[in-house]
Amino acid sequence: MFSPPLCTRVAATKEGRKMAILEITQRDAVTHIMMNSPERLNALSDEMLAALQKTLDKLAKDPTCRVITISGAGKAFCAGHDLRQMQAMRQNTDAGAAAFADLFARCTDVMMRIQSMPQPVIAQVHGIATAAGCQLVATCDMAVAGHGTRFGVNGVNIGLFCSTPMVALSRNIAPKKAFEMLTTGDFIEADRAEELGLINRAVPAEDLAAHTAALADQIAAKLGAAVKIGKRAFYEQLALDTAAAYAHTGAAMVENLANADTAEGMQAFIEKRAPDWKH
């Protein structure tokens, strides 16, 4: 049985009024973040990036949260950066150069934060995920998408190559396919995204939330300390050569084995019973 969800909001100022730019729902050990700017297709505006950074930083310290899911309100998951805000930056004396650099640095901070979180982060994707929105999907540890969802790094269609989204995309799918998407601006649908490895699974659109919740619950039931160590080691070893990766992950396993709950889990397996984990 699920405990009743607890809902909170992260507010941002828009046109002189308050709006809940993020809706946060907690159910058992799973925290769901819904980007709530449907009129902008949940663009990664200054406000959205700030709210995501603040919320992720807070959740990283929350021992009751074991898995995080991210979705978007309205008809799209995320349409990338807010082009209206970017165009306004051109009014600065340097034609926006400093503001653009700051924008991409802040966006990078959010993406890097997702992968440094102790909890796995799952994207729940519908509608479209374009440019930096596709980057967000590729950055999350896992992703589930409804059939008919479209993914693209289509900035090239307006003369802006998606260079920062390219980093996450090219670490998810084969380089030649990533480069094709980047240079043509073509979209792919959920089934093809699953084939390429951009998402974990494509599911019926009407069942998207249920499939994402089931995956989150399955992971949340594991020993949190083990998942935390494993996630950290997963990303760290990717940057190493094979020998160094084995040395690094061997040390991670030694760290994991020192955990009392891991000892209990191993003994429970030997004794053919459920583990009595304390944490």
Results as ranks from 00 to 15, higher is better:
K177S: 09
F2E: 05
A105H: 10
A131D: 13
E194W: 05
D261L: 11
P63Y: 05
E271V: 06
Q85L: 00
F179Q: 12
V137I: 07
V30C: 05
A101M: 10
T249S: 14
A263Y: 14
K61C: 00
M266F: 15
A123S: 11
I270P: 04
G159S: 10
Q119F: 02
L44V: 01
F187T: 11
V156C: 07
D102Y: 08
N259Y: 12
F269D: 09
A245E: 01
M253A: 13
I219A: 01
A123K: 02
T64W: 05
A123P: 00
P5K: 08
V203P: 02
A101P: 00
I188Q: 01
P204E: 07
Q237L: 09
A244Q: 15
V203G: 01
F161G: 06
D261N: 12
E271M: 13
M86G: 03
A214L: 09
Q87A: 01
G96E: 06
A243P: 06
E271F: 10
G250H: 13
G74I: 04
I24A: 01
N172G: 11
G16H: 05
N172Q: 15
M48V: 07
D217S: 12
Q115D: 05
T164D: 07
E271T: 12
R84K: 04
L257D: 15
P275R: 11
N42P: 05
M89L: 00
K54L: 03
A12S: 09
Q135D: 10
M181W: 13
A132W: 13
A210H: 09
A95Y: 10
G197D: 14
A214Q: 14
A245T: 02
R9T: 05
E47T: 04
V153E: 10
G16S: 04
K18D: 11
A123I: 02
S45Q: 03
P275C: 11
R27Q: 14
A129P: 04
A244S: 13
A202R: 09
K222N: 11
M142R: 13
A213F: 15
P204T: 10
Q119I: 02
T183G: 07
A168E: 07
T212Y: 06
M19Q: 12
R27E: 11
T183R: 12
P175R: 14
M253N: 11
G127L: 01
I219K: 06
T108Y: 07
E271N: 15
P4Q: 06
I199E: 01
T130V: 08
R84F: 00
H211K: 12
L49Y: 05
G159H: 10
M117W: 05
A258C: 14
E194L: 03
I158T: 13
A221S: 12
T212F: 07
D241E: 13
K75F: 00
R66A: 00
A50I: 02
A138T: 03
Q26D: 07
A178W: 12
L196V: 05
W277Y: 15
A210Q: 12
R192E: 12
R150I: 10
G133L: 04
A12F: 02
V10W: 03
A247E: 15
R171C: 13
C140Q: 09
A193Q: 06
K222T: 11
D94V: 00
W277T: 06
E180D: 14
M142N: 08
F234V: 00
T55W: 03
A88K: 07
